[in-house]
Amino acid sequence: MVWYYEKKLQYPVKVSTCNPMLAKYLIEQYGGADGELAAALRYMNQRYTLPDKVVGLLTDIATEELSHLEMIATMIYKLTKDATPEQLKAAGLADHYVNHDKALFYQNASGVPFTASYIQAKGDPIADLYEDIAAEEKARATYQWIIDLSDDPDLNDSLKFLREREIVHSLRFREAVEILKEERNTKKFF
């Protein structure tokens, strides 16, 4: 697999209000258990041992998750790059500043660093795809709660786009399960 990098975001990211506290919440989708990094790594790794009918789907979705990761990174960067230490402190980011200055870091909203135990590869295709469906629903819910906390209309526009992508990905994983069940077009009565 070779990736070609296109230097633009999948969907525009605009942040209209100076509210570094939103960066603290957005980090959940950066390095949290149901965040975009976890999603990308989970699918990129699981795809090796899945039946070849659905490998391409996991490659595509994993790649899209990386583009979402870049959107989240852009949001966090825009919200923090011009903040003073005082402003970061007021936003609850003093501990982040002590450890990382304004650098981004793979951690969740509570500052817990990313860990591989957030993701799983069981080797059983149904178990792995069901985990992927659950991961998409959890990421969708996380976007909902961030939108609820955010009052920035432009940021929320991008977050609503990302939430919708979780829905589409969930449907695609559900379709992958149906493909592997192989009983889709047979008229069966149980």
Binding site: R140, E164, R165, I167, V168, S170, R174
Partner: peptide, 29 residues
């Protein structure tokens, strides 16, 4: 929230699309 993927299970062929690419982008699908 109970979004559409819960009820579709397998997307049928030929589902109507948004009229423009811009509308599709704005809706995320």
């Amino acid at each position: 929230s109970t979004p559409p993927q819960l009820y579709i299970a397998f997307q049928p062929i030929g589902l109507p699309q948004f009229p423009t690419a811009k509308e599709a982008l704005m809706h995320g699908t």
